[in-house]
Design a protein around this nucleic acid. Structure first.
Lengths: 208, 208
DNA sequence: ACCTGAACACCGTTCAAGT
DNA sequence: ACCTGAACACCGTTCAAGT
């Protein structure tokens, strides 16, 4: 199996596939060369070095995070839909999220979403610094949630923690609370509830 | 300079100091051995290998995150104080936070705080599954915020993003909003505002 | 029980030499 | 313009040999 000639695009595709399948640690220059059927050093001609190869993958991911189309009849509902879309998009690229996070580019990735949020907060009647703060609060909330959630999913057993919590709750004499804390988190519902609560808190009339 | 004999404690202290000063990447077995004035292989006898050395450091950090003492006159105020304490504690150990996060132990680290939150939510009148959900919402919010915040601080210049946002806001004909979004985030205030908004949203009477 | 140096199998990267 | 293999300076880890 011969190749016409190696291209930068081929390198990026193979590297992206490797990362998506096995994570960034599996992306060694030697493994990538083997996958491409070339000498290790050829890769350097096309992408410089490993660091800038990863940069290029991250850049591509940021671009792929397409336009956001808010849906719903109220600003609060549309903010929810933006938040849900973001979360869904992020969850399909776990390794690449982590890489974007490591590189400190989370914010840039969220730019389209931020613009949608600006629009919705304005529609909800928020103005000036207060609207800006609300946009940022939702942004931090969603990004943070996805980071924590991913952390949870990778986490090893955390039984002792859950057990102890259970006891703390039992001490409050609230068996329903204790039971709820002993149950695994329903992450979809917790996400919805949290964002809804935050948005409700943000949209409260400050003169009320 | 001779030593009586190398101890596990010495190894952990030197390793912790290295990580605190220069991050986990700087913790190579050879560098650590040089710091300790021993052969590289001696370290293996005391801590097994690099992975379990890092595990031990993380474990120690989790333990150091001491008891939480909620302050304030209302449940909402005490939840805020728990959130602020957590954030402060986490911010003084940036590299170690990242390591705890990588290992998926964030939740275990938050156990004492969770117990305090259970108490406060109960005091605020929340019961059963709803109280559990509120505890978790605050936990996710605080952890997520600190992760995002740390990401922001490590981030390179993100000027293009800020500029574009500024324009999006200008399109809404709200110069004050545009100005606010062009200004760097006041992270202390955003944290307070976000947690306050979330707690307000969570404590709203559902029958209202 | 504790420490050692040599050796192994991996890395990313450079570079002179090829076509 | 593009590709190559050899070589370099790093890794973490194993192990037989010392005391």
């Amino acid at each position: 199996m011969t190749r016409a000639s190696l291209t930068r695009e081929e390198v990026l595709l193979a590297a992206g596939s490797l990362v998506r399948r096995h994570g960034p640690a599996a992306l060694t220059m030697r493994a990538l060369a083997a996958e491409l059927g070339t000498a290790v050093t050829s890769i350097y001609w096309h992408v410089g070095n490993r660091e800038s190869l990863l940069d290029a993958l991250v850049e591509r991911t940021v671009e792929e995070l397409g336009e956001i189309e808010p849906r719903g009849h109220t600003p609060a509902a549309r903010v929810m839909s933006v938040a849900r879309t973001l979360r869904r998009e992020l969850r399909t690229r776990p390794h690449l999220i982590a890489m974007v996070h490591e590189r400190g580019l989370t914010e840039r990735m969220f730019l389209p979403a931020q613009q949608a949020l600006v629009h919705e907060m304005h529609a909800a009647g928020l103005r000036g610094a207060r609207a800006a703060q609300a946009v940022r609060a939702v942004q931090f909330q969603v990004v943070g949630y996805v980071l924590v959630e991913r952390n949870r999913e990778r986490a090893p057993l955390q039984r002792p923690a859950e057990e102890e919590l259970w006891h703390a709750a039992a001490a409050e004499q609230d068996p329903a609370l204790a039971r709820a804390l002993g149950t695994p988190v329903d992450q979809d519902r917790l996400f919805d509830d949290s964002v809804k609560a935050l948005v409700a808190g943000l949209l409260v009339d400050p003169r009320a």
